[in-house]
Amino acid sequence: MTTDDSETIVRFENVGLRYGLGPEVLQDVTFSLAAGSFHFLVGDSGAGKSSLLKLIYLALKPSRGLISLFGRDIATTPRRELPAMRRRVGVVFQEFRLLNHLSAFDNVALPLRIAGVRKSDIQKHVVELLSWVGLKDHLDARPPTLSGGQQQRVSIARAVISRPKLLLADEPTGNVDDRMAMRLLHLFEELNKLGTTVIIATHNSHLVEKMGFPKMHLDEGWMEIVGADTDRASVPPASEPGPGGGLFDDGEEDEIRPDLEKLF
C-alpha cells in the first residue's frame, strides 16, 4: 500500500456513516486505493456497498472520519471546487439515474456537454460508445422506453464517456445476461489498463472469482480487503491475457474487448 498521496486516489480513515439517528451503516472504515487499481466491492444486500460508493462520489458526507479524493481532504475542499473533482469520477448508479426526458444519446453526451466539450467531438464518441454497448438502434430512445438492461448500459456509457480517473460502478451487470456482463466488465478492465482506478460493487461472486481482482469485503459495517495486494500488482500486464482472459477463446476475444483508442 502506497502512502504517497499523489498516487492514492481514494483514502478513508476511520470513516463512520449513519443515516439520521439510525445505527452506523459503516464503522471505522479505513483503506486507500492506489491509482490504477481494480477492486470488487462485495457484501450482502444492505451491507453498505452503495453507501460506501456514495461517500466516494460525494453524494453523502461521512458522520465521522476522513475521506480524501485525488489527494484532497473533501471536508476542507470548498464547495465550488467539487464539480471539477466529480468530473474525474464516473459513476454507474445502482438505480441508473438517467434523465428520463433526454434521449439515450443526450444522456451519454451530458458529461461531455457539462465539461464544455465541442459538439462535433461529442457526436462521434457518443455514437461509437453506445454502439459498442449494443444500443446503436436506440440512440434516440428515452430511458423509460428501454429495458432495464438497456438503461443500465446507457448508464455505463455515461459513466465512462469522459474517461474518468476513477470509475465507481454499483451493480453494473445486475440486469444483463452473462455474456453482456462479461463484455461490460472487459470495458472496465480496458479502461483500467489505461489508468482508470475502478471499483465495482456486485453480488455476482461468479464474475468476481473469474476476474480475480482483489475484493473489498463489507460485513455489518466493517470492511476488509481480501485477495491480492491493493497495489498496481493487481493490474494485469497489458501484454498477457488478464485474469478474465481465460473466459473466452481467442476468436471471441476481439469482438468482446473494446478498442478503447477507437472508442474515446
Binding site: Y57, L58, A59, R80, R86, R87, L110, P111, I114, R158
Partner: peptide, 16 residues
Amino acid sequence: REAIEILHLIGAQDSY
C-alpha cells in the same frame, strides 16, 4: 430536484 442532483453528481456547476 432529482435531475438537478444527477447533474451535480456528473459534475455540473451551480451556474450550469
